[in-house]
Amino acid sequence: MHVEVRLFATLRRCAPALGVGESLKLTVDPGTTIADLRDQLGLPPEEVRVVMRNNLQADLNDQIGDGDRIAFVPAIAGG
């Protein structure tokens, strides 16, 4: 299954080659959850504050579907 992954702000250090605005195009096994994907990418669990799937709030236990767009978000807020 193909998945498109976006990392924002401080989490981008886990994929240093990724340019601003670029996404990772990955292949994952059926049944992979967002938490599995987080671990495969080496994202520190305590730093992942919010996950989004296809522009909607998601749960770490959600299974990823083919063609999904997943975003990992650290602590963010502001004005």
Partner: peptide, 27 residues
């Protein structure tokens, strides 16, 4: 102590415009 406001955290590293990509991602 908070990840957003501590040294090296989101706000001092990226400023409030840290939100642009995330709010965009949320539509």
């Amino acid at each position: 102590e908070h990840d957003l406001t501590k040294k090296g955290g989101g706000l001092p590293s990226y400023g409030t415009a840290i939100l642009v990509n995330i709010i965009n991602e949320a539509g």
